Computed example of a mutant assay.
Amino acid sequence: MGSFSLWHWLIVLLIVVLIFGTKKLRNMGSDVGGAVNEFKKAMQDEQGKGEQDKVAKNAENGTTVEGEVTSKTKQ
């Protein structure tokens, strides 16, 4: 009575496919995937913007940002 077995989930999947059809389910899946990708891109843009704001604020205040050199390049 606790969890559903594999047969229960297969029956539910069959009913969902019969109700919506495979084409509509495929379209819904691609729409959800596109929305998730846009959300991830927006989160990365905001994160990058936050880092740029920190650098600009430190430059205005005249503070030094400490870091570690991981590789050297010759110029």
Results as ranks from 00 to 15, higher is better:
K23V: 10
S5W: 02
E60V: 08
K54H: 13
L6P: 01
K49N: 15
M28N: 02
A35L: 09
I15Y: 12
G48Q: 06
V36S: 01
N61H: 11
K23R: 12
R26Y: 04
L18Q: 01
K74Q: 14
D45P: 07
N27L: 09
V32Y: 03
L18C: 12
Q47V: 06
F39Q: 12
F39L: 07
D31K: 03
K49R: 15
M28I: 02
V36E: 04
M1K: 03
K23Q: 10
G34K: 02
S5H: 06
V55H: 04
Q52T: 15
G48K: 06
M28D: 03
K23L: 13
K24T: 12
G21Y: 08
I11W: 12
A42E: 13
I19W: 12
V36D: 00
V32K: 01
V65E: 11
G62E: 07
A56M: 04
F20P: 00
G50H: 08
G29W: 02
V32E: 04
D31G: 03
I11A: 15
V16Y: 09
T70R: 03
K49W: 05
V16F: 14
E66H: 05
N27T: 03
W7P: 09
V69M: 11
G48W: 06
L14A: 13
E68M: 03
E68A: 09
